[in-house]
Amino acid sequence: MTEMIIDVENLKAHYGLGQALQNLNFGVGKECVAIMGRNGVGKTTLARALMGLAPPQASGSVKLLGQQVLGLPPHRIAHLGVGYVPQGRRLFPSLSVDEHLQLNARKGPTGQQWSASRVFELFPSLGQRRRAYGDQISGGERSMLAIGRALVTNPGCLILDEPTEGLAPAVVEDVALSLKELSREGVAVLLIEQNVKAAVMAADRAYFMSEGKIVHETVDGESMSDEATLGRYLGVSV
């Protein structure tokens, strides 16, 4: 068993009276792991709980990069070396593309070298919009910037909540391959994704969620794009 960078045990979370996450147990080492499931099964709640964002009544154990983070405020979790791409991008309308990257640029725990210029190499079209503000760029560029601002923190662990939503297929491929490469560099990548192709391309293995629980985990050699699995847990065929 390799060392776990994201280590979740018995994680439960509530929204008021409703239970959104039920006893989740999973781990991510230096690899890219996909969390898949239909809308509303608790994937975003899981990402938010890992980042300390919500819901307030989370219990269990969440260790990120060896530290217990449950109960820590989000900015402390981010500074442990956790990069986060929230669902819906959540860019800052008052900040330019450049400012988004400058504000987040820092040395991470793994000694990677993600800088603004490397982000612009990965996403050339973003490089042409450096002075544009967060609400002035296209949907695809917003996704690129949301990923870019997480990369320049040089994270030891990266949590992405549907990062490829709204991206053109060619760009989805670029993003998926960079995530795979990132995991090869020693970063734990947790990819919450509805885009099966992106998940298959980027991830080494996958967990499938349903109704706040992990209901299936791909075993060694099992294909994530296995039609029966996808049909059962996602209701899609590829």
């Binding site: 959540r90 800052f92 900040l95 987040n104």
Partner: peptide, 15 residues
């Protein structure tokens, strides 16, 4: 400016 725009996201990005 980031905090005024969106406090929660600003915190999740380390501010």
């Amino acid at each position: 400016r980031a905090g005024v725009d969106d406090r929660e996201t600003a915190m999740s990005q380390g501010i």
